[in-house]
Amino acid sequence: MSNIGVLIEMDGQEIKASNHGVLTVACTGGNVVALVFTEDGEAIKSDLERFGAGKIVTMSATSPVQKASLMAAAVKEYDLGVLMGVSSSQGRDLLTRCACILDAPIALDAMHVNLSDGTVVKSHFSGKTTADIKLTGDILLIGLRPNVIEATENPVSAEMISFTAETGSSDAFKVLELKKGGGGAIDLSEAEIIITGGRPMDSAENFKLLHACAEVLPGAVGASRAAVDAGFAPHSIQVGQTGKTVSPKLYIGCGLSGSVQHFAGMKTSRVIVGINTDKDAPIFGKCDYGIVGDLFDVVPVLTDVLKARKG
């Protein structure tokens, strides 16, 4: 059995829930070695054990360049045949830097992975097609799209190792600052439920309606490009071709016509709901459930019904 590495993404002192799907896939390929940048490995030990990590390698570094070179050193040290991670913005960056150091192939945003033959399925042409990619090399890197794999537990007990290696100086690349944007908002690409507003939202103020609903769901709020370009919402929450690609369990589109470019970013959602005043809107031709109605009437009722259901 080969050793499968998983880069664990942290959210403060805890591991992000999206790691569980990656660990679940990793378990199908061999012995799972978790690579984590943290000072306190004990705090996450039981969580990682529950999802099958037999070895937990903790490392410490700040800059992405140093992290990637530590990861590459760990790949060699622990004889990893595959290194996987969440295809989030941070995960993509670190995995790709690591692939370049190792001169190894990488497939990002994978929706399906077969570790026995090194193939992955990922989107091509903005979600209009999928492509089978065959990775060839001694070490393969894979970034998994969040939420596409249902996590299952594979309890083991883990050996804890603290790892360090020479990373060299990185004067040529310095992180100066992290500017906080949304104030602790859930990263859209990792949200399990998303409610999105389109052009008819009509103002930034009206997005509060969606935020109120998102709070009870619970989920995150997205926007179409029409809403973003009109200044009703920040680009960081735009879904679609030129925005985020998301695959939540549930996607609720309010006042979306159903454009090809918007669907490019969310068509792999498990269930899509459309709310639109126009019964002939294209979205009703390509979603699962539809409500013909004014979003300003429907969304508050939805919020109330969800609240009542939670009691």
Partner: peptide, 11 residues
């Protein structure tokens, strides 16, 4: 641009 609207400033 990072996830969730955050931005990393890099030199």
């Amino acid at each position: 641009e990072m996830g969730g609207g955050d931005r990393e400033v890099i030199e």
